[in-house]
Design a protein around this nucleic acid. Sequence first.
DNA 1: CTATTCTACAACCAAATGGTTGTAGATCAG
DNA 2: CTGATCTACAACCATTTGGTTGTAGAATAG
Lengths: 143, 143
Amino acid sequence: MVVDQLQAQFSDEELDRLFQAFADTTRRDIVRRVTMGAYSVSGLAALYAMSFAAVQKHVAVLERASLVSKEKRGREQIVRANHDGLQRARRLLDEYEVIWRQRADRIADLLAETATAEPGRTQTGTRQTRNTQSNKTEGKTEG
Amino acid sequence: MVVDQLQAQFSDEELDRLFQAFADTTRRDIVRRVTMGAYSVSGLAALYAMSFAAVQKHVAVLERASLVSKEKRGREQIVRANHDGLQRARRLLDEYEVIWRQRADRIADLLAETATAEPGRTQTGTRQTRNTQSNKTEGKTEG
DNA sequence: CTATTCTACAACCAAATGGTTGTAGATCAG
DNA sequence: CTGATCTACAACCATTTGGTTGTAGAATAG
């Protein structure tokens, strides 16, 4: 089953945090910057038109999402990129893409097969009479 | 400048919406399902332990993020995957990864170069005396 | 025609988000 | 020691988010 294949290595909460972390322009910019080189928190704060505390919160969000890590260096806190989170997000999107491609191929095959046999459209209703798979396919309209 | 290279093809608002859309387990599941086959809204709603209206809202979020598209078919609204959004998100993460790799290579080179010349650590303070680039590099601690 | 189904949308609510200011503890410079 | 800097954290506020229920319209089934 594809469901198991997908998201096998990520918990839902983890992914929520990960994508939520990316869903803010300031945080994406912080990720970009620390990907290119380490910054102190105050160093980052100086770059944005918002309070130190606000930037501190953004860094905290990135840290909880495992996209960034902090390391105490004297009185400063040095922020560095954590490549793992980036890779995890990318890998998930890759897997969606794999599924999509599999489906595209499958559709191409079906079209080639049934081109002469059944010219009409497949059923689009919610209730399907024949549920061939044990899987929950309620509401599915098109293979 | 790398800043221009990155995000050249995405607006901030677009990316906010895109990643925000992914930042919810139910929505990721909807994306997965419609990636594998089209569903009506009510068909999707039947799959989750929440109201029809709630699922309707999730679909709306995905639609605003260009991850999904709806097409009226009789009294039903058929939800299909919009592969573009997926690709865009992936491409952005790819670009972060490119930058990261470039940086990793650069660090490897620097380490090889300065291994004998300068054993000490590079400065970690917020204020750098020499700002060689016109670029805002305040607070940057490490190349 | 009537009843059902599917959708859209408004109104509402609790919790999370993104921001602020203020206070206080550590560390460093002079 | 004194003052400046960096950080952490609490309290507060407005807006957004994720959910609910209810109402109403359009399309289909009988």
